[in-house]
């Protein structure tokens, strides 16, 4: 089996360029605040944050792969572990844990004890529907869509020769400290694996 990347992101985190945590937190806060002003609807803000995260994720994945030397993950379980242990450490400086696997290994929860995005934040009554950290779910969704994975965790319905796939996922918030829970929990659900095809037609 090919060696996979590091089990923890500490070493990579030490070499990453960093910004002041307060500047980061406050910039994100200002962004959310501005979105609330511009879009008015909380649902629209959630959607917009997710879209922004997605756009970040499809770029971030290359930086992650280039710096972490992760070559591949054999299954979705390993993918989730790598996101939680290496990905979160590299880009947010915190480590998450992976729990609550369902029976067929296509759905799990990523739990964040510590979340640098929410320092100084309290949700006012008018924004109770807001998923303040919705950008994170978008990032995960975008990044996973760009990576390939193997058939070893494919559904029986997908022929095993379709190896080169991208991972379509749904990422939703289960728990949120800002809403009175005790941790941040993101549910990552593998929706489908999209096989890739030879991009050119013969008669082109």
């Amino acid at each position: 089996m090919a060696p996979v990347g590091p089990r923890s992101g500490d070493a990579i985190f030490a070499n990453m360029e960093r910004v002041n945590a307060e500047l980061f937190t406050l910039t994100y806060g200002a962004t959310v605040r501005q979105l609330l002003t511009d879009l008015e609807e909380v649902d629209e803000v959630n959607k917009q944050l997710d879209q922004m995260g997605y756009n970040i994720g499809i770029r971030l994945v290359d930086e992650f792969l280039a710096k972490s030397n992760v070559s591949r993950c054999v299954d979705f379980k390993e993918t989730a572990e790598v996101i939680a242990k290496v990905g979160f450490k590299m880009f947010l400086g915190v480590t998450a844990s992976v729990t609550n696997w369902d029976a067929d290994g296509t759905c799990c929860s990523i739990v964040l004890e510590d979340n640098p995005l929410v320092d100084f934040v309290e949700l006012p009554d008018t924004c109770q529907g807001l998923y303040y950290c919705n950008i994170l779910s978008g990032v995960i969704r975008g990044a996973l869509e760009m990576v390939s994975n193997t058939s070893s965790f494919a559904q029986p319905s997908i022929p095993s020769f379709l190896w080169d796939v991208s991972l379509k996922t749904e990422v939703t918030w289960i728990r949120d400290v800002l809403r009175g829970d005790d941790a941040y929990e993101l549910q990552v659900k593998l929706v489908k694996q999209v096989p890739e095809e030879y991009p050119y037609k013969d008669d082109e």
């Binding site: 290359d62 792969l65 190896w163 890739e196």
Partner: peptide
């Protein structure tokens, strides 16, 4: 299509006049 990094993959080949080196990231 093959998965990047799956099983085996080639990284270069050489002819008498040139050498081609190849790398594929997991993002394709």
């Amino acid at each position: 299509p093959q998965l990047p990094g799956q099983g085996c993959s080639f990284h270069s080949f050489r002819t008498n006049t040139y050498k081609l080196s190849f790398m594929e990231s997991p993002s394709g």
